[in-house]
Simulated assay, not measured.
Amino acid sequence: MSMQYGLAAPGQVLKVVTGDINFPYNFVKDQRVQGLSVDVAQELAARLGMRLDIQVLPWTRALHTAQTQTSVMLFTVAKIPAREKNYYWIGPVTHSEEWLYKLKRRTEIEVRTLEDARHYLVGDEANNASIPVLAHLGIKVDTAPSMPSNCRKFKVGRVDLIPFDPDGVEDFARSCDLSMAEIEKTVQVPRDTALYFAFGKSTPAEFIRRVNAAFESMVKDKSLQKICKTWKPDTPKK
């Protein structure tokens, strides 16, 4: 799925790759990619005099595409050691907590600490930033190619817990036919909460400087904060 936004001269296109479900940062609704990161990227592209072209891919493929292709931007992505050297980083754009959720009906699952989580199987999307953190903590992880397929396993009990951001979990639950009354937050995954945009290292340094300058102008004039507060009302003032 590829979607274009805005007007610009031919050839002036900011190409973006992203995953399908990451509420409230990027998600597909009404056949459009929407979310906090989409709004930030649209403003960023406008300041660069470019048109935005967003392609929705499986997350593993999105990571690989941005890493191996020139001047392709990736969002929304956490900076973890395994990724850090592979990309140029723009941001942080916003911050995202990640918590483990269980089905309330599964009363046999009791998770009050991260140590408790070691007794259960966590379902996660392949190449999610939480996977190495969970592995380091000795928590077993079963991966799925996408969040919808991960949620299907969660609903039928093939995995016990799934990680998600509290700011987007209600929309995520709704997307896979669960209500908030059916799920329960347990413990937080202890990772860096910053989220970024990223480009592969074959991207010209001059273009990265232009993107960084445009992004910093959004920080300076509070445009970034305004967009973030639209999607995350608890965004702190800076």
Score class of each variant (00 low, 15 high):
Ser146Cys: 05
Val133Ser: 12
Asn127Ala: 13
Ala62Tyr: 02
Arg191Phe: 15
His64Asn: 11
His136Arg: 12
Asp20Lys: 14
Ile131Gln: 05
Leu224Pro: 05
Pro10Glu: 04
Val77Phe: 08
Leu52Ser: 10
Ile90Glu: 09
Ala194Pro: 00
Asp167Tyr: 00
Val93Met: 12
Ala9Thr: 09
Met50Phe: 12
Thr230Lys: 15
Lys29Cys: 09
Pro204Lys: 12
Val189Gly: 10
Tyr88Met: 11
Ile139Ala: 03
Ser179Asn: 09
Asn22Trp: 15
Gly11Phe: 03
Met180Val: 04
Thr203Pro: 04
Val16Tyr: 10
Ala46Gln: 15
Pro132Cys: 11
Gly123Asp: 04
Asn26His: 11
Lys232Asn: 11
Ser130Trp: 04
Thr143His: 06
Ser37Gly: 13
Leu100Trp: 06
Met218Gly: 01
Asp142Ile: 00
Asp53Thr: 07
Phe23Leu: 12
Asp30Arg: 08
Ser217Phe: 00
Arg209Cys: 06
Trp89His: 09
Val33Arg: 03
Met50Gly: 13
Leu224Met: 06
Lys104Phe: 09
Met147Ile: 02
Val56Thr: 13
Glu125Phe: 09
Arg105Cys: 01
Glu43Thr: 14
Glu43Arg: 15
Phe172Glu: 14
Ala9Arg: 13
Gln69Lys: 01
Met147Asn: 09
Arg210Glu: 15
Pro81Phe: 06
Ser179Pro: 00
Arg174Tyr: 07
Ala9Ser: 14
Leu52His: 11
Phe199Met: 02
Arg158Glu: 08
Lys185Trp: 02
Asn127Ser: 14
Thr76Pro: 12
Val211Cys: 12
Lys85Gly: 11
Gln225Gly: 08
Arg47Tyr: 11
Ile90Lys: 05
Val156Ala: 04
Glu110Trp: 04
Glu84Thr: 11
Ser71Lys: 10
Val93Ile: 13
Gly138Glu: 04
Glu170His: 02
Thr65Lys: 03
Arg61Leu: 05
Val219Arg: 15
Phe75Arg: 04
Lys155Tyr: 02
Tyr196Gln: 12
Asp116Trp: 03
Leu63Val: 01
Ile131Pro: 11
Thr113Trp: 10
Asp39Asn: 12
Phe199Ser: 08
Thr68Trp: 09
Asn128Ser: 15
Pro236Asp: 12
Leu137Tyr: 13
Leu57His: 02
Lys201Asp: 08
Arg118Asn: 03
Arg174Met: 13
Asn86His: 14
Ile90Arg: 05
Gly157Asn: 04
Tyr87Val: 10
